[in-house]
Design a protein around this nucleic acid. Sequence first.
DNA 1: ACCGGGAATGAGTACGTTAACATTGTGCCT
DNA 2: AGGCACAATGTTAACGTACTCATTCCCGGT
Lengths: 342, 342
Amino acid sequence: MQDEKSGRAPAGPVSMAQVARVAGVSQQTVSRVANGLPNVSERTRERVLLAMEELGFRPNFAGRSLRSGRYNSVGLALYNVEQFGNLGTIKGVLSAAGDVGCAVTTVEMDDRAPLSLAEATRRMAGLPIDALVISMSLKSDDFEDFVPQPGLSTVLLTMYEHPRCTTVDSDQYGCSTLLMDHLAARGHREVRFVGGPAYSVDSTFREKGWRDALAARGVDAAEPLRGDWTADSGYEAGAALAGDAAMTAVYAANDQMALGVVEALRDAGRRVPEDVSVVGVDDSLRDTVPHVGLTTVRFDLVARGRAAVEQALLGTAPSYRPRAIRIPPTLVERSSVAEARR
Amino acid sequence: MQDEKSGRAPAGPVSMAQVARVAGVSQQTVSRVANGLPNVSERTRERVLLAMEELGFRPNFAGRSLRSGRYNSVGLALYNVEQFGNLGTIKGVLSAAGDVGCAVTTVEMDDRAPLSLAEATRRMAGLPIDALVISMSLKSDDFEDFVPQPGLSTVLLTMYEHPRCTTVDSDQYGCSTLLMDHLAARGHREVRFVGGPAYSVDSTFREKGWRDALAARGVDAAEPLRGDWTADSGYEAGAALAGDAAMTAVYAANDQMALGVVEALRDAGRRVPEDVSVVGVDDSLRDTVPHVGLTTVRFDLVARGRAAVEQALLGTAPSYRPRAIRIPPTLVERSSVAEARR
DNA sequence: ACCGGGAATGAGTACGTTAACATTGTGCCT
DNA sequence: AGGCACAATGTTAACGTACTCATTCCCGGT
């Protein structure tokens, strides 16, 4: 049985040599046609293109990059794929890679494999990639010893800084400054904090930003509460906070918890924002809740992914020096913040 | 200046031949060590490993796969990356690929390039992949002519069926059956539908499921409303629906719109679920809204991604026959559905 | 002492591509 | 007419790996 579209039945992958034979030219001429080089006569080009079509030729990636030494692909090592924010980051990575004609080669680092940076790098080093972006929740001590693969430009998506790798992240500290300034400008001094789980690096940086902002204004930080990012855990925190008569504002480390806090405060008879102001982080409720009123902060996650890829590709140049890039957040002002009562 | 870790400064990528020279063995022996083959004496193995370490050897992907003809990678063509559900699907793709030691090579098909299936396949065909998964919003007519790249096992993530490619999707029709059965069992006959935008294929299938379910019970379908997936658009639809005295239930095509419908109905003085029952799709509010009460339907998106990769890899066997796989949803019963008034 | 056998290792080759160089053909200028 | 420039095409070599086969070496059995 023959392929109904072509006269010949191509068995397995088709090489340039086979196309050349059919077209009656040399293999080199096929290469020239495949790469759109100019020095081919129109007649020959057509003959070759026809033969390609007929045989179903597709260029062999391995042969091509063995010759060129380039892969036109960026590596992406992901841990915790389903975590909030990864989709935007992935979009940015794909988009920036696509801009320069690169694909993205991704590997999920799950719990089957060890999670160390060194291990992740080793696994990625054997893949067809020109540069590497690593997105993993990292403990600080992992950094001390880490040495990137020599000859493989590496960027880390993290708030920590590294002497030999560029690091890129949304500014998880700066978002607190932004929100606390916003609250302070409206007379809020006693601001409580509802964080994420203790192991969360992002939450830790947001908490530090909150703490420093209070300290800068000479306010003692009241004990922060801790949720698990869910709205229900925010509700619990809000219920616990409702009795605190001193505080005038609550800073929840994400919007879902902030929504829970608002609900709990209202259920406890405290009005938002008249009695208590509430702010969150992420702007994740925009399309999700009708008439969102939550004042929050938005990260440009796509820019985060884009920056990572751009730096990783820049890093292939020998003169490149590692740097730390922090994508600034923007304030999204809605109606959950009012002037503090005196 | 020398590399501080090794005696020699490796210039550029290191090949097996260079390692062999340093270790005083043949290139073939280095290959055996690199691949863990048994026929190497302990003494030689150690010498080679030492040389590898010293030079910073990493196996060349291109050479390896040129020889083997395999890439150990699955291609993923994505359109509309940030669309709901993609993160779970990506997780499933990565996870299933990782299970068999494969990476995932992804390209975003954005509006710079034409969106046709043929075009996407052509672009992916030159990448280092053994099989291909395509996730694009597809119009039905794209299918008629589409012929997958010969020799490249291809799976489409879509509800449409294709004679020559396996297609995989969450059952966007079956979710309606599930919800309508649930409502019917509680005496609901007049069920209104709030769909997504007209171009959405998913919404179209959900609407068809709703329509067929009504027809099966001899109920004339009242004109469906249309939102844009956001909670606010759901609110508008709910406000328009509130005056309909005949209906006893609303089926919104996603949870965010369903939440808007609930809010609007309550603002209009109709109780949920006592007066009107409301159901949604996706179970996307679970952690997002405190005390979610919405009855909805959950898709196993990870399973969707996993199935796509599994079928794509199975498709590399010559005896494989294309099929259509629909991942069934599960009902998530909460408190927005009650017995219909008589 | 000789031979057979198996383990360790090496030599040669092919995978598909592209760069560099070589060759042929064509037309134009002097 | 002779030669020169340039375009079109062909030839050769090399990229790094792993398969197949050949060789060497050592040991034990007779």
